[in-house]
Design a binder for these strands. Structure first.
Lengths: 348, 348
DNA sequence: TTGAAAGCGCTAACAG
DNA sequence: CTGTTAGCGCTTTCAA
């Protein structure tokens, strides 16, 4: 079925294509009567200008690419939602590219998005969370960023200077750690995450700092690495419960791990927060879904996406942009943490 | 910064643009030595052909639009994931369009996607789940579908004949209902959903049928409508618990509502499944995250997205496609349901 | 206020 | 096997 073009409209309205274009875009004055005539024909045929042709000439596609590791993890849909809202307001549509953190998928999508001439790319996860990334991956990102606007969310690529929007995860972690200490906890454990992931490293360091400030010993066994999923949380908690000296509080690298940890604890008949306090991180949907509801840290994921699009848009518009935007996290106190002293009494 | 074009490549490789195009697409034989020379120049400049220009002439954009109500609801990311995987394999990228079920957003996106000349649209939620939709909304969908391939997922638009991929939700609901009855439950209640939403209606009818088959009375008070969120689940469960005659099993319209229901029950000190069995629907991430884990119905959300893309692709390829693809749901038995007789004993 | 015509970057006949 | 050339559908000078 043949698509209608500006020529068809022009012909039927007895004007030139230039005039049709003018009424479409309002780029130049058109006599009212002419405009009406053109508009009538446009409506009659439900004409929709071909954005591809327009983009080709304008060198703006109105498309943004968003590369993220896992839309199945509730944190990321929230970032997407924030980004989309802002994008819609500025007339962009978003390509959602899911990589599962696989670097070859990231590369594929990076290439695909460039070919599609998106106006900019928002990048999350994968290589930008790695403590050390291969030089070629960094180079690839740098090359891409040299061709089009790119902003990194909650990550960084050392030696490549890119605009970033990040949550101050260390600050967030200090918040929960201090919260637990204030509740009287002295035996803290950190579970989940990976040594090779910067976010994990930042959290561990924050915990170390807070513990030392409070005169608590931070040893190598304070941390139990092991992933980011519910399954790993469960597994890690089992290990913790098997320890001869159980902690009174377990801090999880994220909500997923915390959910697994809570399950394992509950299965073992451990009272939360009676015998054990557990904390999450991210304040995803999960945190408030389980019982007891998780004390956690809100990253303000929505704002993360929103800011990213704003910055992208500024870059597209040739404005000068801030290289680093830091969002402050917020402690969300719920039911999974409690005072340690009361607990002792209750138990014995 | 000027983008490199086929002309630049052609010039530097001392061939014509046609030849460059040929090596790019493999559409015609090119002498090996020539190809090498062209390829070398391409690599040297990291040339990436402009997909907009290509799409303009080929009348294929390699883009798919996916319109859905809420990516924040864990069911939808799963559908997306299935769709994306299939789309990637066929070289498509996906525009994710989130509508929150708002009809004007659906309309906006429908128009936007058409302008962008996506190769097809996958539509979920909103108007296609309405028992009655305004004629103009139906017309809009029909018009859009007349211009490009469209497939509806888990929905329908009466009087508009479109390809659909759906879960047999009624069959799924029969599964859980029968499961509960087999466990000895006689007092069943349905909570959540809306009268105006087809999926709810189908479930209620399925429940009615199963109950009647089993000689159980289905009355108007068997159903408590009230939404699809965790919050509404909580609220509805509170109402159920306040009933003078409490049911032994509560069936929820989806996992979200079930999560809220479980929370409310737990808060009220009700044992699950000891005193009360609760079921969900969809088998989202939430179902297996909470304690007790939910008995629910898997929609095979992944396959839903996968099939939708496959059908879209067939339509693009001009193949004949099945109008209706029905996926069979699966009962997932977990911890939130239990035998009713045992319960009685335990309680008294 | 309007029209003619030159591209945007690519592909696809059609010749050679 | 390769080059020339005519568009794809739109925007945008430049003239009128």
């Amino acid at each position: 079925m043949k698509q209608i073009t500006v020529y068809d409209i022009a012909h039927e309205a007895r004007v030139s294509v230039a005039t049709v274009s003018r009424v479409l875009n309002g780029t130049a004055p058109v006599k009212a009567s002419t405009r009406e005539r053109v508009l009538a024909v446009i409506n009659k045929h439900q004409f929709q200008p071909n954005a591809l042709a327009r983009s080709l000439i304008k060198k703006e596609s109105g498309m943004i690419g968003m590369i993220m590791p896992d839309i199945g993890n509730p944190f990321f849909p929230e970032v997407f939602l924030g980004a989309e809202k802002e994008a819609r307001a500025r007339g962009y549509a978003i390509f959602l590219c899911n990589t599962m953190g696989a670097q070859e998928k990231e590369s594929e999508y990076l290439a695909l998005l460039q070919e599609k001439r998106v106006d900019g790319i928002i990048f999350l996860g994968g290589r930008i969370n790695q403590v050390r990334s291969k030089a070629e991956l960094a180079q690839e990102l740098a090359d891409c960023a040299a061709r089009l606007p790119m902003v990194l969310v909650n990550g960084n690529m050392p030696r490549v200077s890119l605009s970033r929007v990040v949550t101050d995860e260390a600050a967030g972690f200090r918040l929960v750690a201090q919260h637990l200490i204030d509740l009287g906890h002295r035996e803290l454990r950190f579970i989940g995450g990976e040594r090779s992931i910067t976010a994990t490293v930042q959290k561990v360091q924050a915990l170390k700092a807070v513990m030392e400030e409070n005169g608590l010993p931070f040893g190598p066994d304070t941390v139990l690495y092991g992933g980011f999923s519910i399954g790993s949380g469960r597994e890690l908690m089992r290990k913790v419960l098997a320890l001869e000296k159980r902690p009174t509080a377990v801090m999880c690298v994220n909500d997923n791990v915390a959910v697994g940890a809570v399950k394992a604890a509950l299965e073992a008949g451990v009272q939360i927060p009676g015998e054990l306090s557990i904390t999450g991180f991210d304040d995803t949907l999960l945190a408030s879904s389980i019982t007891p509801e998780l004390t956690t840290v809100s990253q303000n994921s929505h704002a993360l996406g929103e800011q990213a699009v704003q910055i992208l848009h500024q870059m597209v518009s040739g404005e000068k942009v801030r290289k680093l935007t830091v969002l402050e996290p917020r402690l969300i106190c719920r039911q999974s943490t409690g005072s340690v002293t009361v607990v002792g009494k209750v138990r014995d």
